[in-house]
Design a protein around this nucleic acid. Structure first.
Length: 454
DNA sequence: GCAATATAGCAGAATTCGAA
DNA sequence: TTCGAATTCTGCTATATTGC
């Protein structure tokens, strides 16, 4: 390659990292941004330039021998350049990677190169591109702008090909030339997010249904034998059982992925006992709840069922579930600041869920012997933990908000926050940052012009 | 039931910062 | 001066919610 060709091309100057261009070309540019450098640093830059085939910089290095200088902080040309060479080495070993060439127009020559932009919705502005599923271009649908994306992940490309080969529909006709995931990348296949999502979801459901049919025949024999085993162990002549109870007994004998529901349990009961067994439908529940033998008197059955349900842990669990799930800490409409958290906690302490409290006091009967506040704090923490868990992390609690902020403030560790979030002990790092950003924006909005918010 | 919308979580790339 | 960790920014996916 001819160096002079590049040196004469002014656009070329803009396409390379702004590093060394000014520094090496002009010697010392500014006292604050330039350093003498070290032999080690110069050796690394030399290697990076060779890795990047950066003939312009190689030529400069040769011209200045071992005395060239380079930008350090705050412009960090050195770091950026070394990093770029490392990435280049990595991507060369990964086929299919498209090397990015930055647009140089209007860019500050001292500015570090912008990060590589993904090919996504924002870059898919060409209206001639069409969605491979619906065969339509980018369009506005009501208030929603349906943008086009490009398939850029091997897993997704492979799944898409599987779906094509499964359906052999008009989409397959449009993509007849695609055989491998590599073909999908090369062909630049575009899609509307929702179109592809629905297409793959439909495929996944049909595949699942097929597998289910195949497995069903094998499972049926296993379930049947286990049901008979459970039914034989129950005494329908003197006792009554809820369908859920029988279902649980059967499921305990079955493997995890072979579980049956109440409806199937009832079908098996009818199939096995025929007309010798009866169901009742309590008015307040409006669902089949109990089963009894025809030889038992109806009055005794009701009493038998009532006592069995009352003593069962299921009822307790359901009531606690209802209380835990439905409690509202009122933090969703707030910024979760320390004041919000305190307010929410104060409200909770004055309106503690009574059944939960009662349950915990039964569980820890020695609470009266110790400091009550200490025990209440533990109960409150546990309640908030379960509440957060039941809402799948959607309902924030004072415990989770304050603990996340405290841990992060003390450790500054995202990893720690993430670990705690996975254990349901903290809100996610992103949620925390979003809240902090929202608080900061609010402060700025509420601050008068030309005044500092604090 | 379906489509649109909102939200949480995850991941990658670039930048900043501080310690050695 | 160098390096690694933390932070910021951006985009995508999965899931829940809402309205028709």
């Amino acid at each position: 390659m001819n160096f002079n060709t590049h040196l004469d091309n002014s656009n070329y100057l803009n396409t390379f990292p702004k590093l060394i261009l000014a520094v090496v070309a002009g010697g010392v540019v500014g006292v604050t941004t330039t350093s003498d450098g070290t032999d080690d640093g110069r050796a690394k830059i030399r290697m990076a330039a060779e890795q990047l085939n950066d003939y312009f910089v190689i030529a400069r290095i040769k011209a200045y021998s071992n005395t060239f200088k380079y930008h350090l902080k705050p412009k960090a040309c050195y770091s950026t350049y070394i990093l770029k060479s490392k990435r280049s080495a990595k991507t060369k070993s990964e086929p299919g990677h498209v090397e990015e060439v930055e647009e140089g127009e209007g860019r500050d020559s001292n500015k570090a190169p912008k990060r590589q932009k993904r090919i996504t919705s924002s870059s898919c502005k060409d209206n001639e591109r069409k969605c491979v599923i619906c065969d339509r271009a980018r369009e506005s649908c009501g208030t929603r702008n349906r943008v086009l994306y490009r398939i850029s992940e091997s897993d997704r490309a492979a799944l898409f090909l599987d779906a094509l080969n499964f359906y052999k529909d008009e989409v397959k006709t449009r993509c007849a030339f695609l055989d491998t995931a590599g073909d999908v990348f090369a062909a630049d296949v575009f899609y509307h997010g929702n179109c592809l999502r629905q297409y793959l979801l439909k495929y996944k459901r049909q595949i699942d249904a097929l597998f289910e049919n195949i497995q069903r025949s094998d499972e049926a024999a296993t379930i049947d034998s286990n049901c008979k085993c459970v039914f034989d162990s129950l005494d329908f002549k003197t006792s009554s059982y809820s369908v859920s109870h029988i279902c649980n007994l059967i499921n305990a004998k079955l493997e995890t992925d072979n579980q049956i529901d109440n409806r199937r349990t009832k079908v098996f009961l009818i199939k096995y006992f025929k007309d010798t067994i009866c169901f009742t439908y309590p008015d307040d529940r409006r669902k089949s709840q109990m089963v009894y033998s025809s030889s038992l008197l109806q009055g005794n059955i009701i009493e038998s069922l009532r006592s069995s349900v009352k003593s069962g842990p299921q009822k307790i669990a359901l009531e606690l579930l209802h209380e835990c799930k439905n409690y509202d800490f009122g933090l969703e409409a707030t910024y979760c600041t320390s004041e919000d958290v305190k307010l929410s906690l104060d409200h909770y302490r004055s309106h503690r869920p009574q059944q939960w409290l009662q349950f915990m006091k039964f569980m820890f009967p020695n609470t009266s012997n110790t400091n009550t506040d200490e025990w209440l704090l533990k109960f409150d923490t546990l309640f908030q933990f379960i509440h957060y868990w039941l809402s799948s992390g959607r309902n924030r609690t004072p415990f989770h908000c304050s603990l996340t902020q405290t841990v992060h403030n003390l450790s500054r560790s995202r990893q720690l926050v993430d670990i705690m979030n996975r254990m349901n002990l903290a809100i996610s790092y992103d949620s925390m940052q979003r809240l902090n950003t929202a608080v900061a924006q609010k402060m700025v909005e509420e601050t008068l012009p030309n005044r500092c918010p604090w």
